[in-house]
Measured scan of single mutants.
Amino acid sequence: MQNSHSGVNQLGGVFVNGRPLPDSTRQKIVELAHSGARPCDISRILQVSNGCVSKILGRYYETGSIRPRAIGGSKPRVATPEVVSKIAQYKRECPSIFAWEIRDRLLSEGVCTNDNIPSVSSINRVLRNLASEKQQMGADGMYDKLRMLNGQTGSWGTRPGWYPGTSVPGQPTQDGCQQQEGGGENTNSISSNGEDSDEAQMRLQLKRKLQRNRTSFTQEQIEALEKEFERTHYPDVFARERLAAKIDLPEARIQVWFSNRRAKWRREEKLRNQRRQASNTPSHIPISSSFSTSVYQPIPQPTTPVSSFTSGSMLGRTDTALTNTYSALPPMPSFTMANNLPMQPPVPSQTSSYSCMLPTSPSVNGRSYDTYTPPHMQTHMNSQPMGTSGTTSTGLISPGVSVPVQVPGSEPDMSQYWPRLQ
């Protein structure tokens, strides 16, 4: 039975679970980093996980050691009161100082060594604690504590007292930064006198190289990059290397530039699409467009005044059976039934097929058609009795279509119309 579990990581490298990497692998990681390889490249070359490479390099940059820390136990506290007071002093002298600059000053002034120097995250935590204590304490208590930490007896009751030896409130920041720059020169002199001055200088240079600022491109470089971006948004590694040799930039910087440029292009394309949609959409909808001609068919113009009344309900007709019959029939052209047409008796099958359309009241044959006459024609229609054979009435077949029909004066039988409509 094995005491430890061995495995293979996602890159194909072998590791022992819970145990640190061998010293030979750690040394190779540092050597590759000094030669300029990126952590992701080191991870692929040595088949070590990216997190492990970053952790080893980060500890090497901070402490200069590649040895693993002790497994188990607690780390001794490195942010001692003396170190905290120095950090507060540096922050007062130059409020814009960075944590890694404070760390360098602690090393250069001999406050800490490589073994007990606090990390950048520890210094940031100390600065946050100082800021929170400043908010919790009152103004007087804060000034007393700062005077105690600074070891001075001057008056701290006013704002300019934060910067000793100065009279203009805006000047101390520059003086403090100048003092810090002077301390940086002392850093070089002190570290050069040490035993491991060369190694420390190499480590600091490598650290500065990794902690780079934003790349500033010249106009020629920007023009070359934009020209390549117009050709393709995704250049391959050969195109990037050719462009890197042409404009004297690292291939990694060119790759990052193209990634950022593609993101910018997507944002601009989104804005262009929004403007295009806004320009195509009308600002207001016309009133006429809300009524579609496919839904509402136009009603033909009436030929006679009587045809303006298109349904039985508008003429005072309360018989719903006839109203439904007229509205359900398709529109037909106007025609006239003459008196000489043969009077065919209704076929029983045809009569039964339209039995649902006729009223059940037996008085329908005896009703006159003056009910369908509009009010303004009552006088004219009353002067001509319906009993004469020459009287013409208008029957409504569908809305908007008038059918003048000659009705025999002897017997106005409704059943004569249905064979004609089939």
Rank of each mutant, 00 (worst) to 15 (best):
residue 13 G to R: 09
residue 97 I to N: 13
residue 145 K to W: 10
residue 94 C to M: 12
residue 125 R to M: 01
residue 140 D to Y: 12
residue 11 L to S: 04
residue 141 G to S: 13
residue 31 E to G: 11
residue 75 K to L: 05
residue 110 G to W: 10
residue 12 G to I: 01
residue 97 I to S: 14
residue 8 V to G: 04
residue 117 I to P: 08
residue 131 A to E: 11
residue 99 A to K: 03
residue 72 G to A: 01
residue 96 S to K: 13
residue 90 Y to E: 07
residue 64 G to F: 03
residue 74 S to L: 01
residue 23 D to K: 05
residue 84 V to D: 00
residue 148 M to A: 14
residue 139 A to K: 13
residue 60 Y to I: 07
residue 150 N to L: 12
residue 78 V to N: 00
residue 47 Q to H: 05
residue 124 N to Y: 11
residue 55 K to R: 00
residue 10 Q to V: 07
residue 122 S to H: 00
residue 51 G to S: 15
residue 113 T to N: 10
residue 80 T to H: 06
residue 44 R to M: 05
residue 5 H to M: 09
residue 144 D to G: 09
residue 48 V to N: 04
residue 85 S to T: 11
residue 73 G to D: 01
residue 82 E to A: 14
residue 126 V to M: 07
residue 143 Y to T: 13
residue 36 G to S: 05
residue 83 V to L: 03
residue 87 I to R: 00
residue 137 M to A: 14
residue 9 N to C: 04
residue 11 L to R: 06
residue 110 G to R: 11
residue 120 V to H: 06
residue 29 I to V: 04
residue 124 N to C: 06
residue 49 S to V: 02
residue 81 P to E: 09
residue 64 G to R: 04
residue 41 D to M: 06
residue 99 A to N: 05
residue 114 N to C: 13
residue 104 D to Q: 14
residue 50 N to P: 15
residue 20 P to E: 01
residue 112 C to N: 07
residue 40 C to G: 05
residue 8 V to D: 05
residue 140 D to P: 12
residue 65 S to D: 08
residue 38 R to L: 04
residue 23 D to Q: 09
residue 114 N to I: 09
residue 147 R to P: 15
residue 50 N to G: 06
residue 50 N to Y: 15
residue 79 A to R: 04
residue 48 V to P: 00
residue 23 D to M: 15
residue 77 R to Y: 04
residue 59 R to F: 05
residue 67 R to W: 06
residue 135 Q to D: 08
residue 24 S to I: 12
residue 101 E to C: 09
residue 141 G to H: 08
residue 105 R to T: 10
residue 95 P to H: 09
residue 26 R to C: 02
residue 83 V to H: 04
residue 108 S to M: 13
residue 25 T to V: 09
residue 110 G to Q: 14
residue 68 P to F: 06
residue 73 G to K: 05
residue 13 G to T: 01
residue 92 R to S: 12
residue 87 I to W: 05
residue 12 G to Q: 02
residue 121 S to R: 03
residue 31 E to Y: 10
residue 129 N to V: 09
residue 103 R to W: 04
residue 11 L to I: 06
residue 51 G to I: 00
residue 133 E to L: 10
residue 78 V to C: 06
residue 102 I to D: 00
residue 69 R to P: 01
residue 4 S to R: 15
residue 138 G to F: 14
residue 2 Q to D: 09
residue 62 E to I: 06
residue 54 S to Q: 00
residue 53 V to P: 02
residue 147 R to T: 13
residue 110 G to P: 08
residue 48 V to K: 04
residue 120 V to P: 15
residue 40 C to Q: 04
residue 35 S to I: 14
residue 65 S to I: 05
residue 86 K to I: 07
residue 42 I to T: 02
residue 54 S to F: 04
residue 112 C to R: 07
residue 75 K to R: 09
residue 97 I to A: 13
residue 94 C to H: 12
residue 130 L to M: 07
residue 143 Y to K: 10
residue 20 P to N: 00
residue 49 S to I: 00
residue 147 R to V: 12
residue 77 R to I: 02
residue 150 N to V: 03
residue 80 T to E: 02
residue 134 K to D: 08
residue 123 I to L: 05
residue 141 G to M: 13
residue 112 C to F: 05
residue 42 I to E: 00
residue 111 V to Y: 09
residue 19 R to S: 03
residue 14 V to P: 08
residue 84 V to T: 08
residue 69 R to F: 07
residue 30 V to M: 05
residue 107 L to W: 10
residue 57 L to M: 07
residue 94 C to S: 13
residue 113 T to M: 10
residue 111 V to H: 13
residue 139 A to I: 15
residue 73 G to S: 03
residue 105 R to A: 09
residue 61 Y to F: 07
residue 54 S to Y: 08
residue 104 D to K: 10
residue 25 T to G: 02
residue 74 S to H: 03
residue 89 Q to P: 00
residue 18 G to S: 02
residue 49 S to L: 00
residue 91 K to I: 05
residue 74 S to D: 01
residue 22 P to E: 02
residue 105 R to I: 08
residue 23 D to E: 11
residue 103 R to I: 04
residue 46 L to R: 02
residue 133 E to N: 13
residue 25 T to W: 04
residue 4 S to H: 11
residue 89 Q to S: 10
residue 69 R to L: 12
residue 90 Y to R: 05
residue 18 G to W: 02
residue 39 P to H: 09
residue 98 F to L: 06
residue 31 E to S: 08
residue 135 Q to R: 12
residue 25 T to L: 06
residue 47 Q to R: 15
residue 35 S to T: 14
residue 76 P to S: 04
residue 94 C to A: 13
residue 43 S to E: 04
residue 14 V to T: 13
residue 43 S to D: 01
residue 66 I to V: 09
residue 96 S to V: 10
